[in-house]
Write a protein that binds this DNA or RNA. Structure first.
Length: 419
DNA sequence: TCTGGGGTCCTAGGACCC
DNA sequence: TCTGGGGTCCTAGGACCC
């Protein structure tokens, strides 16, 4: 007898103001105040002799940092993530400013994920503060409770929230729907400490009135273009002809927009993935010039390469494509990369390759940011486990050449490349 | 004195091979 | 001599996300 596959029940869990909430566990005296996390590192709270603490205020800050998270009290003053700290200081000069402490957040991240996994093990990681969870096959998830056909799923989501709260002291918001796209939207509808369960029937009333920008995948550029076309809400998109969206946005993105607006998304919850790249970058306190600040830049460049090498080694990866990223004073970004004959995690090899990349950039403008990236990653263990067999060595025809050459573009005058 | 740092995925052209 | 495809790799840029 053919059986109907169970309907998918996908949850999206988002920790509420995660970094800020972790800080409030440590500094409970700040509860109820506008608190902002971000900036550099030079504003640690100071403990006074009487045991009380003194905190930095936004107004005290000078620098290029941005806000990473803020408490709901700070958000009420117009202070949001990714806003420059200097700009936020104009809006809320008296808000408390705390430095970011990623170690701490990562520790709490592991704890909340473990708490979820006790009840629902099929988890997709989406960074420190959010996850997708596949509830489809959990016992009881498909059961109705009283008149609520989704009561089983709702009860599981509530248990997950409770378990997270018990093990971390933190609240989260959960959306449960037939897919990741809708769940991501749903988890935001009742923040903080929310629980929202939606079916496709709820689309017109709960999703279509929302701004198009609320859809994960519609960013500032796409939203601006939509606005220019008189399209503001998700419902506006849903009313568009699919073919017209394809004309306006291209075959792939146009079709995706149409699907998204109609709540269609078949992507599975992916429980395991391998990293694609690792990188290190830094924004300077003031813009630097390649000639005038050569020594300073050179030292920073080497430092970034060393850090990348350490990251690779610590995590057990080798990288075969080394790249650089520059941001100029006008905010223009340039990248260059170079694929090596063999993967490496050696700081000097990375530094050399990055140096080759740098030669291919016009450095007349001042620099704001410098970054180094390792792509085409492979696990060290996997590379070790396949010693150079005769077959392998014979594989690339060019391996016969005496000295491996960098695969530089032809238009680049090779200049004084080591040779 | 606007605008961090760490990622993923997509597109597109040219090289190069079959 | 002309005219083709398909497929993969490399590189650069850009949109988007947390």
């Amino acid at each position: 007898m053919p059986s109907v596959p169970p309907r998918r029940l996908i949850a999206h869990l988002d920790m509420d103001a995660f970094y800020a909430s972790v800080e409030l566990l440590r500094y409970p005296d700040l509860r109820g105040l506008p608190v902002v996390i971000g900036g550099g590192r030079r504003h640690q709270p100071e403990t006074l002799p009487d045991g009380s603490r003194r905190y930095a205020r936004l107004a005290d800050y000078a620098g290029r940092g941005v806000i990473t998270t803020s408490t709901y009290e700070a958000r009420a003053l117009g202070v949001h993530s990714a806003m420059g700290v200097m700009k936020a200081a104009v809006l809320a000069p008296q808000a408390i400013l705390l430095p970011v402490d990623f170690e701490q957040y990562r520790a709490y991240s592991r704890r909340f994920k473990a708490a979820v996994a006790e009840l629902a093990p099929v988890i997709e990681d989406r960074g420190v503060d959010e996850i997708y969870i596949d509830l489809t096959h959990l016992p009881g998830a498909q059961d109705a409770v009283g008149h609520d056909p989704l009561g089983g799923a709702r009860a599981i989501a509530r248990e997950i929230k409770n378990n997270v709260q018990r093990s971390t002291g933190l609240t989260c918001s959960i959306g449960v729907t037939p897919n990741k796209l809708l769940s991501k939207i749903a988890s935001e509808l009742d923040k903080p400490d929310g629980l929202t369960v939606l079916t496709l029937d709820d689309l017109p009333t709960r999703v279509w009135p929302l701004a198009a920008r609320k859809v994960n995948g519609i960013g500032p550029k796409a939203a601006a273009k939509l606005t220019g076309l008189g399209i503001h809400t998700v419902g506006d998109i849903a009313r568009c002809e699919r073919a017209w969206l394809v004309e306006q946005f291209g075959r792939s993105y146009g079709a995706w927009l149409h699907d998204a607006a109609w709540g269609r998304d078949e992507r599975p919850v992916v429980t395991e993935s391998e990293p694609v790249s690792m990188s290190r970058e830094t924004t300077f306190e003031r813009d630097l010039h390649a000639v005038r600040d050569k020594a300073r830049l050179s030292a920073l460049f080497t430092e970034l390469c060393t850090e990348l090498a350490q990251d690779l080694s610590r995590k057990g990866y080798l990288s075969q494509t080394i790249g650089i990223k520059l941001r100029f004073d006008d905010f223009r970004i340039v990248t260059r990369d170079l694929t090596l004959p063999a993967p490496t995690s050696d700081a000097q090899a990375i530094r050399r390759a990055a140096g080759e990349c740098l030669k291919r950039v016009d450095l007349s403008r001042r620099l704001r940011l410098l970054g180094v990236r390792g792509g085409k990653l492979m696990r060290q263990a996997a590379v070790d486990a396949r010693p150079p067999s005769p077959a392998r060595r014979a594989l690339p025809p060019r391996a016969a050449e005496p000295e491996p050459t960098y695969n530089l573009p032809l238009f680049e005058p090779l200049a004084d490349a080591d040779s």
